[in-house]
C-alpha cells in the first residue's frame, strides 16, 4: 500500500459514467428493470421464478466479460490497486454484503437509478452511505493508517 495516488481522469470518468447511464436506461427500456448490481446479484442467487433468472445471469456474464473487451480496446486490463489486505478485504466485503441487503441497494441501484428517479429513499440512502464511506476512509487513512 505504498503509493496510492491516482491520476485525475475526468474524460475517462465521464465516458464511463455515460456508459453506466446508457446501460441503466437500456435495461429499463428493454426489460423494465432497475440496473442495480445488488438486486441483480440477489436475483441470480435466489431466483424468484424461471423467467426472472436468465436475464440476470446474462447481465452478470456481460459485466464479467467486460475486462476482456477492455483489454482488446486498451491493450491492458483495467487497473486494480487494492487498498486492503486480505483480512480487511474480507471484512469490507462482508459489511458491503450485509449493508446492501439490509439497505436494499448500492451505488448503482440507489446512487444512479434511484437518484435519477428522484426517489427520496434512494437520496437518503446515498447521502448516508457517502457519509459513512468518507468517514471510514478518513479513519482508515488518517487515524489507523500512516
Amino acid at each position: 500500500m505504498s503509493d496510492m495516488t491516482t491520476a485525475f481522469t475526468p474524460y475517462a470518468a465521464l465516458l464511463g459514467g455515460v456508459l453506466i447511464g446508457l446501460a441503466s436506461v437500456a435495461l429499463m427500456l428493454f426489460h423494465g428493470r432497475i440496473m442495480g448490481a445488488t438486486g441483480i446479484l440477489a436475483g441470480v442467487l435466489f431466483p424468484a421464478g424461471a423467467r426472472d433468472w436468465g436475464w440476470r445471469v446474462m447481465i452478470l456474464l456481460g459485466m464479467i466479460s467486460a475486462p476482456a473487451f477492455y483489454f482488446l480496446l486498451a491493450g491492458q486490463m483495467p487497473p486494480i490497486q487494492s487498498v486492503a489486505n486480505v483480512p480487511w478485504q474480507v471484512l469490507g466485503g462482508f459489511l458491503v454484503g450485509i449493508g446492501v441487503t439490509v439497505g436494499s441497494g448500492c451505488t448503482s441501484g440507489h446512487g444512479v437509478c434511484g437518484m435519477a428517479r428522484l426517489s427520496r429513499r434512494s437520496i437518503a440512502a446515498t447521502l448516508t452511505f457517502m457519509a459513512t464511506t468518507a468517514l471510514t476512509v478518513y479513519v482508515m487513512r488518517h487515524v489507523l493508517g500512516g
Binding site: L91, F94, V96, V102, S108, T128, T136
Partner: peptide, 18 residues
Amino acid sequence: GGAAIFGIGWGISGFCPG
C-alpha cells in the same frame, strides 16, 4: 442502517458491488 453499514464496507475495501 443498511446504507451506513454498506458505506463502512465500501470505505474499507474500495469495492462496491457494481
